[in-house]
Each structure stands twice: as structure tokens, then as C-alpha cells.
């Protein structure tokens, strides 16, 4: 079987597990939503909330990413499934892309819900001219977060203390994604006074470079990381 075929199978397996266990819908999405409400309590004023809405959406996404990555590897390591996959001779690169794909799908769903929440709770508005930028940003940022999460999650998988180690490793790494995605969404939604849509595109470029760099890095490094 080709690498892509195996990757799709792995992704399908992860998504099926999630659909049946309903952890994402019953726990992760409510967690992200409650985070958004907590931000409102912390920042208080309506005008401030509308201004910082894109940043808060991405912060909530990052926190949820940590939960999702833990979850994604917990189902692998609990029953020794990761070892079984390796024994079955699954190409590590295919495993990496499969898990990243499944994570990306979950993240994308979550981001759409969070932007909807920002529209309802914070009064952010999605404007027609920024729609292309918004969708492109969501796609590239999701890819970046998924590859980084899969790579570092695989590193910490199966070790005691991984719950505390993962945020320490992942958050500094995704700082460029947070900056880039926040600025791009600000430009797309026009939450900052005088923001024009074209200002967002350089940030999408940054996100794309990030996704490619860590995608290649992850493909090469995932084998040595889990092969022990």
C-alpha cells in the first residue's frame, strides 16, 4: 500500500474512534466554549472583546490543541496500539500524516465553532471581502498546528509526565502560528479599526512556511522518535 493510502486509513481509524467515543463533542468543544466565556469575564468590556476576538479564538484553539493531542496519543499508547502499528510495519511517515490529518479535521471543526462563538459572544463580524483570507488562514493555521501537535505529541507519548511536558514543548513552538493567525484573522474580520484585507496575506505566507517546515521535519523525524 502506498504511504498516502496508509495515512488515510490511520486518519480514518482516529476519526472513527473519536466519533464513537464522542470525547471531542462532549468534552473538548465545551472546554473551548467555556474558555471563551472565561476570556469575557477576564476582559470585561465589550469594545475590548470585539477588538481582541481573533486572538482569543486562536488562544482557545491552542489550549484545545493540547487536549486533543493528549487524547490522540492516549488512545494509541493505552493498549500498546502504537507498538502494534510499528510491529505491523506501518511506515512512520504514513503514521505521522494520518494522525496529523485526523487532528487537522478535528481542529478545523473546532475553529469554525469558535469563530461562530466569537460572532455570537464578542460581536465579531465576518465580512464578505475577507472571507477568502479567513478560509485560507484557517486551513494553513490548522495544518501548522496539526503537524506540530502530532510531532511533539509523538515525542512525549508513552512517558510519565507527558501531560505537563507537552504544553511546555508545544506552546513556544506554535507562538509564530498564534501571531500569524491572529493578525491574518484580524485583517479578515476587520476587528482593528482601519484594517484592510490585503494586510493579512503576508501572515498567511508565514503560516504556510511554518506548515511546510514542520511537515517536512515531522516526516523525517517521526520515525526515529517513536522507533525505540
Amino acid at each position: 500500500m502506498s504511504t498516502w493510502r496508509i495515512a488515510l486509513l490511520v486518519a480514518g481509524k482516529d476519526l472513527r474512534v473519536e466519533r464513537r467515543s464522542r470525547v471531542v463533542t462532549n468534552q473538548v468543544v465545551p472546554f473551548a466554549a467555556v474558555t471563551m466565556v472565561m476570556f469575557a469575564f477576564a476582559l470585561d468590556a465589550d469594545a475590548v472583546l470585539q477588538r481582541v476576538a481573533p486572538g482569543l479564538v486562536w488562544l482557545a484553539t491552542l489550549f484545545s490543541l493540547l487536549v486533543l493531542v493528549q487524547r490522540s496519543y492516549a488512545i494509541e499508547t493505552d493498549d500498546g496500539a502504537l507498538d502494534a502499528l510499528r510491529v505491523a510495519g506501518v511506515d512512520p511517515a504514513a503514521l505521522f500524516w494520518g494522525k496529523a490529518l485526523a487532528l487537522a479535521v478535528q481542529l478545523a471543526v473546532l475553529e469554525v465553532i469558535l469563530i461562530g462563538t466569537a460572532v455570537v459572544l464578542y460581536g465579531a463580524e465576518v465580512r464578505a471581502e475577507g472571507l477568502v483570507l479567513l478560509v485560507t488562514t484557517l486551513v494553513t493555521a490548522t495544518c501548522s498546528l496539526a503537524v506540530v501537535g502530532t510531532l511533539y505529541g509523538g515525542l512525549a507519548a508513552g512517558f510519565r509526565g507527558r501531560e505537563t511536558l507537552l504544553p511546555l514543548l508545544v506552546l513556544p513552538v506554535v507562538a509564530p502560528v498564534l501571531i500569524g493567525a491572529t493578525r491574518a484573522v484580524e485583517a479578515a474580520l476587520g476587528t482593528v479599526p482601519g484594517a484592510v484585507v490585503s494586510e493579512g496575506w503576508p501572515w498567511v505566507g508565514l503560516l504556510a512556511v511554518f506548515a511546510v517546515a514542520f511537515g517536512v521535519g515531522g516526516t523525517l523525524a517521526f520515525g526515529p522518535l517513536i522507533d525505540e
Partner: peptide, 22 residues
């Protein structure tokens, strides 16, 4: 493990610097 992280960190630094510069 640490060799992978050590090499990824070097990949990361220019990206962080670029993004923060912007």
C-alpha cells in the same frame, strides 16, 4: 529524542524571529 528536538529548535528560531520581527 533530544537530538530531534535540538535540530527542530534551530529550525524554529528563524521562524520565531521572522514572525516577531513582522
Amino acid at each position: 529524542r533530544s537530538a530531534v528536538i535540538g535540530m527542530l529548535a534551530v529550525l524554529l528560531i528563524p521562524l520565531v524571529h521572522w514572525s516577531v520581527r513582522l
